[in-house]
Design a protein around this nucleic acid. Structure first.
Length: 834
RNA sequence: GCCGGGAUGGCGGAACUGGCAGACGCGCGAGACUCAAAAUCUCGUGGAGCCUGGCUCCGUGGGGGUUCAACUCCCCCUCCCGGCACCA
């Protein structure tokens, strides 16, 4: 017998698959298209176990759909711009381009060693000018449509990465990449107007039924829609008004003061010449200096200062004091709020602290609220309007709409919607990214680079000092240019784009990766898009997944494709854990995929990473369980190679009617396994149970084989027996092939097939074999299991009951008792209530 | 605080639409092979008790409920993971 030697088999098949020039993307086309995409990696150096798991999941999905006759697109590429390359340049003196390209070729080779079936002819690398050309092109299109704009604003600054971060890239006040605390900085920045799509991005969440609920929740939270009204509060001195945003216009009669953000532009005018002026300035100054992380977490003392000025409550016509509050955010709403102590907990505390009146204007169900005795604000959106002029006694809900209508009718305010979502700041003060295609001319101002001059190529000779500031500004050759409009002296924008721009449309580029005249071809994109199955980590729940949805909508509105959403189904796979923690160099719990592949082979690595846990859950690494996966593959190898002689010349298996009981047993197992594995893959990618079913199937075949009558052992043994075995082994191999492609391909050839196992069709379960010959009927007395009955499935209820009543094990329970009720579940159980 | 997800043997995890809880794998125990070990193969393996065929009771985070029957449905609670959070 030949031993299973993955070191021989795997490289040989990888070479043959690669050499076979048939474009795998064009295989199939019998049952429609299927676009299977796994988030492309940043080429950081080498593949880690998380990648192994991730790409294996994608490969099993792609291979199984191909076997089932679909036209499958399964591409791979590189998210190749980014900071690590630039840091390597600063630390080791390697150019980011060489560092990146070197990593790509190494990681590509690693992916090939895993036997992942990518269509490498469609490989996309974002740091190449043929790709980022189109980043620039999209930027210009957005600029034309006012979806890209420049503004000076306070931005998130990571002091370690020495660059700006988008709001989405600040996690708990720290940099998403390096965890450093984020500072505020005033800078001129380019923004993409993602807020123009806020409503559509939010509404789309309801239709993304193929996405995990928690990702949708995160996106909804992030967009943070709140509906309400903007209301004008006239200043008492008649010199204008303050506009506030509120979600509770029904509480307007209870507004007893106002608060402005410390940055609010109106403050200076309000305090002009008042005795409070100095104190207010000092307070605002201090509030602005408040530690950003404290401010982000709300972890500071809420305080305010009275400006001395008053505004008029537009409904009560009463003057109310205007304060400045350190908790009011200039970035949200209008930077000014009306404060209703009785119905907002924060306002309540503030009013108590500064002795400001509290007015109850919404009563609870039993109308028992009294301003003097309330221990806390009543914030329920329920109850009855009180003390609210003509609105008194309306229900809270009716009051809300009626008051909004009243405000609109009297031009006191308007219905508005506010979003938490901010525009996407994309300027980065780093080198290794897409140059922003803008030119600044002293005469003409901001001038976009004409499309014909794209791409604006990233220059290679730039000093990497690590001192901060945009490295491109150091390159005189890049910086100095002529104005495309007037031909005069001008300089280029030296910031580069956030790398999330690159990954926001790469899935479109895969549909026509070598296109040179446009980002992609419409027919190709319309054929393949949307991605049927997208696979990646949960860490991109808001970042990449939100940006990609935004880009897709922009691209659609540019008339380039008809897709509304990029990804129909999303699978977020769990992390790979060892010793209770995420694998990381600093914790020293890393398993190197190369070592694993050398020792056990890619098939074992693949099988284990799918078997140990369902894909969405974290996977706890277990070296011993890896051995288990390897053992299973060895057993399959031995079983098939031992039986090759008997199986090679076997004919077709017999019909159920004329098969011997022995043959029936195996046939039934074969078809039930086909059914189970197919269902597990279809349902929700339950690879773990699919593999378990294959293991059980192996166990059945091996036991069946061990019980073969002596005479049948020979190659010329019983024909039906051999035919059933042949069918079982063929099914076993094909069903296992997406998981363990090398082993199954090799065994397939050894069974005498000349074509690849991947040219095979996925087996279809024959319904005639799915019925059991005997079913077990559970016998219960009062719902407790007391006995079992083996009966043919077609046996009727009456006969089963007769047999049950005769069952000696039931006698102690039914003797001398009256049967009050019988519950019969066909094919499952009979429950007698006594 | 709000939202989402979760809790099942020693471990990873199964269980259709309410119908035999613990599939499959790991580990562990016993045996076979071997001079021996490794590898491999066979059998056993939720807990407790009676007893050695077998039987009984308990058991899916905790407490109640619905039902002939609950890991599954309903109510309350605890703990864990993730997200959001002075957002007006």
């Amino acid at each position: 017998m030949v031993k299973y030697d993955h070191t021989q088999i795997e490289p040989a098949w990888q070479a043959r698959w690669l050499a076979r020039q048939t474009p795998i993307t064009e295989d199939g086309d019998r049952a429609g298209k299927y676009y299977c995409l796994v988030m492309f990696p940043y080429p950081s150096g080498r593949i880690h176990m998380g990648h192994v798991r991730n790409y294996t999941i994608g490969d099993v999905i792609a291979r199984s759909h191909r076997l089932r006759g679909r036209h499958v697109l399964h591409p791979m590429g590189w998210d190749a711009f980014g900071l690590p390359a630039e840091n390597a340049a600063i630390e080791q003196g390697v150019h980011p381009a060489s560092w990146t390209m070197h990593n790509i070729s190494y990681m590509k080779q690693q992916l090939q060693r895993l036997g992942i079936s990518y269509d490498w002819k469609r490989e996309v690398t974002t740091c190449r000018p043929d790709y980022y050309h189109w980043n620039q092109w999209f930027f210009l299109k957005m600029y034309e449509r006012d979806l890209a704009y420049r503004k000076r604003s306070a931005v998130n600054w990571c002091p370690k990465c020495r660059t700006v971060l988008a709001n989405e890239q600040v996690i708990d006040g720290a940099c998403w990449r390096c965890d450093s605390p984020v500072a505020q900085k005033e800078l001129e920045q380019w923004f993409l107007r993602i807020t123009a799509y806020a409503e559509e991005l939010l509404a789309g969440c309801d239709r993304l039924t193929g996405w995990p609920e928690r990702v949708l929740t995160m996106q909804r939270n992030w967009i943070g829609k709140s509906e309400g009204a903007e209301v004008e509060f006239p200043l008492q001195d008649g010199s204008g008004a303050i506009t506030i945003f509120t979600t509770r216009p029904d509480t307007l009669y209870g507004a007893t003061f106002m608060s402005l953000a410390p940055e609010h532009p109106l403050i200076e005018r309000l305090i002009q010449g008042r005795p409070e002026a100095a104190a207010v300035r000092a307070f605002a100054e201090e509030a602005r200096r408040l530690d950003r992380t404290a401010r982000l977490t709300g972890n500071f003392e809420k305080a305010g200062v009275f400006t001395g000025a008053h505004a008029i409550n537009p409904l009560t016509r009463q003057p109310i004091p205007i304060w400045v509050g350190n908790f009011v955010l200039m970035e949200y709403g209008t930077g000014a709020i009306m404060a209703v102590p009785a119905h907002d907990q924060r306002d309540f505390e503030f009013a108590k602290k500064y002795h400001i009146p509290i007015r109850v204007v919404i009563q609870n169900a039993d109308r028992s609220l009294r301003a003097e005795t309330m221990p806390e604000a009543y914030t329920e959106e329920a109850g009855w309007m009180a003390d609210s002029g003509s609105f008194t006694n309306l229900s809270q809900a009716a009051g809300k709409t009626t008051i909004i209508n009243h405000l609109v009718a009297h031009a006191l305010g308007k219905r508005t919607i506010n979003y938490r979502l901010r525009d996407w700041g994309i300027s980065r003060q780093r080198y290794w990214g897409t140059p922003i295609p803008i030119i600044y001319c002293d005469a003409c101002g901001v001038v976009p680079v004409p499309e014909a001059q794209l791409p604006v190529v990233l220059p290679r000779d730039v000093p990497f000092t690590g001192k901060g500031g945009s490295p491109l500004a150091e390159s005189a050759e890049f910086l100095n240019t002529t104005c495309p409009r007037c031909g005069g002296k001008a300089r280029r924008e030296t910031d580069t784009m956030d790398t999330f721009v690159d990954s926001s449309w790469y899935f479109l580029r895969y549909t026509a990766p070598r296109e040179t005249a446009q980002p992609f071809r419409r027919e190709a994109a319309d054929y393949w898009m949307p991605v049927d199955q997208y696979i990646g980590g949960i860490e991109h729940a808001v970042l990449h997944l939100l940006y990609s949805r935004f880009f897709t909508k922009v691209v659609r509105d540019l008339g380039l494709t008809s897709a509304d959403e990029p990804f129909t189904n999303l699978l977020t796979q769990g992390m790979v854990i060892k010793d209770g923690a995420k694998m990381s160099k600093s914790k020293g719990n890393v398993v190197d995929p190369n070592v694993l592949i050398e020792k056990y082979g890619a098939d074992t690595a693949r099988l284990f990473s799918l078997f140990a846990a369902p894909p969405e859950k974290d996977l706890e690494w277990d070296d011993q369980a890896v051995e288990g996966a390897s053992r299973f593959l060895h057993r399959v190898w031995r079983l098939v190679t031992d039986q090759t002689g008997r199986v090679q010349t076997a004919g077709a298996p017999p019909d159920p009617e004329r098969a011997s009981p022995r043959v029936q047993t195996l046939q039934r197992a074969t078809h039930q396994t086909i059914q189970r594995v197919t269902a597990d893959l279809d349902k929700s990618f339950q690879f773990n149970t699919a593999i378990a079913a294959l293991m059980e199937f192996y166990n059945t075949i091996a036991q069946w084989q061990a019980s073969t009558p002596d005479g049948a052992q020979a190659p010329a043994g019983d024909a039906d027996d051999r035919a059933a075995l042949a069918e079982a082994l063929r099914a076993l191999l094909v069903l296992l092939s997406p998981f363990a492609p090398h082993l199954t391909e090799e065994l397939w050839q050894r069974l005498g097939h000349t074509a690849s196992i991947f040219a095979e069709r996925w087996p279809v379960a024959d319904p005639r074999w799915l019925k059991d010959e005997l079913v077990t009927i559970v016998l219960q007395i009062n719902g407790k299991l007391r006995s079992q009955l083996q009966v043919p499935p077609e046996l009727d209820e009456r006969e089963i009951e007769t047999r049950a009543l005769a069952d000696p094990k039931l006698q102690p329970y039914i003797e001398g008792k009256t049967i009050r009720k019988r519950i019969y579940v066909p094919g499952r159980l009979l429950n007698l209530v006594v």
